[in-house]
Structures are given as structure tokens and as C-alpha cells.
């Protein structure tokens, strides 16, 4: 009886020590899961998920606080990837999926208030006080954060047009489908 207890206790001590040692020796700085999640997020920093940027959202997902379907710019594909990574169920997106957009400033209306420059999370708007502002198209992530602050409503979002440079070959369309006769 006593031996059994002693053996079990000894085992517990040894294993506990090993675990303790491992937790110090192999300590991982930061949460690697957060990085993986963040790599999937589109980095628009739009805050549409309710968190102030992609990283906080990634952290919230990793903590299990946030759902994986809160990122409209990532779209359903993003949800699917996150579900894959985290082994969670795929859920429909919690918002309407929009095509990728671009902010455009009406240069005639802009009064140069710099409010949009302050709002832009990726410094994609150039211009200074009292000078017309312009969106650098190739940097704009389409987050819409600049639309609201504009006092003269001169910023609009436009879907990115398909050009020869970004045109994509389509998925072959002829699958065999049962020929349904019209009634």
C-alpha cells in the first residue's frame, strides 16, 4: 500500500518536474497560432470585425473569444481557411460579401481637412492640410475607414475593375449535369 503510494507520488514528482522544465526550456514567445491566423486575415485593418485591426482580431480568435466569420473582406474563403486551421465548423459570413473595393476621393470636392489621412490605417492617402488628398490606389486596402470621417462626403468606394493585368481564367464550367426536361 505504502509502496504503491510512494511510487505514484514519485512518478508525479518526476513527471511534474519534467513538465516544469519543458515549459521553461521550450517556452514559445507569443502565440504562434495568432501569427497563423493573422496570415489568413486580409490585413485591411478595417475593424469591421469589431476589433481595432487584424492582429487584435487574430488574438481574439486564438483566445476563442471571437467567431471566425466576422471578417467581411476575407470573405467565405477566409472563413473556410480559418475553419481549416482551427478545426472549427465553417459558418456563413456574418455580413454581406463584397467585391474588393478601392476608396476614391473626389478631388474637386476635397477641402484638405486631413481627417481621412488620420483615419487611413495603412497611410494610403497622401496630401497635407488644406491641400487636396488622393488615395494611392495600389496601397488602398478598401477598408472604408476613410469614408465616414470625411466632412464633405467626397470619398466613395468603388469595386476594383477587372483589367487585363488582374484578369483570371475561369474554372472550367462544363460539369455533367442531369438534363432535366422542362415540364
Amino acid at each position: 500500500m505504502l509502496t504503491a503510494i510512494l511510487i505514484m507520488a514519485l512518478g508525479a514528482i518526476v513527471l511534474g518536474a519534467a513538465l516544469g522544465y519543458a515549459s521553461i526550456k521550450f517556452k514559445v514567445e507569443g502565440n504562434p497560432l495568432v501569427e497563423k491566423i493573422e496570415a489568413i486575415l486580409p490585413q485591411t485593418q478595417c475593424g469591421q470585425c469589431g476589433y481595432p485591426g487584424c492582429k487584435p482580431y487574430a488574438e481574439a480568435i486564438a483566445e476563442g473569444e471571437a467567431d471566425i466569420n466576422k471578417c467581411p473582406p476575407g470573405g467565405m474563403e477566409g472563413v473556410r481557411k480559418l475553419a481549416d486551421l482551427l478545426g472549427r465548423e465553417v459558418k456563413p459570413l456574418d455580413a454581406e460579401e463584397k467585391p474588393k473595393q478601392l476608396a476614391i476621393i473626389d478631388e474637386q470636392l476635397c477641402i484638405g481637412c486631413t481627417l481621412c489621412i488620420q483615419a487611413c490605417p495603412v497611410d494610403a492617402i497622401v496630401g497635407a492640410a488644406k491641400q487636396m488628398h488622393t488615395v494611392v490606389e495600389s496601397l488602398c486596402t478598401g477598408c472604408e475607414l476613410c469614408v465616414k470621417p470625411c466632412p464633405v462626403e467626397c470619398i466613395r468606394m468603388e469595386p476594383i475593375a477587372e483589367k487585363i493585368d488582374n484578369w483570371k481564367w475561369k474554372y472550367p464550367v462544363f460539369e455533367i449535369k442531369p438534363a432535366r426536361r422542362a415540364a
Binding site: Q43, L139, N166, W167, W169
Partner: peptide
């Protein structure tokens, strides 16, 4: 598949740039 991969690469590069700038 090729154009999809290219497009994803573009998106990824944009996302990385956006992240860095943010």
C-alpha cells in the same frame, strides 16, 4: 489554377504590405 495562384500571390503581397504599413 495558375491565374488563381498569381492572384493569391498578389493579394498576399498586398496584405503583407498593408500589414507592414499599418
Amino acid at each position: 489554377a495558375k491565374s488563381e495562384i498569381w492572384s493569391r500571390e498578389r493579394d498576399k503581397n498586398m496584405a503583407d504590405a498593408a500589414k507592414a504599413r499599418f
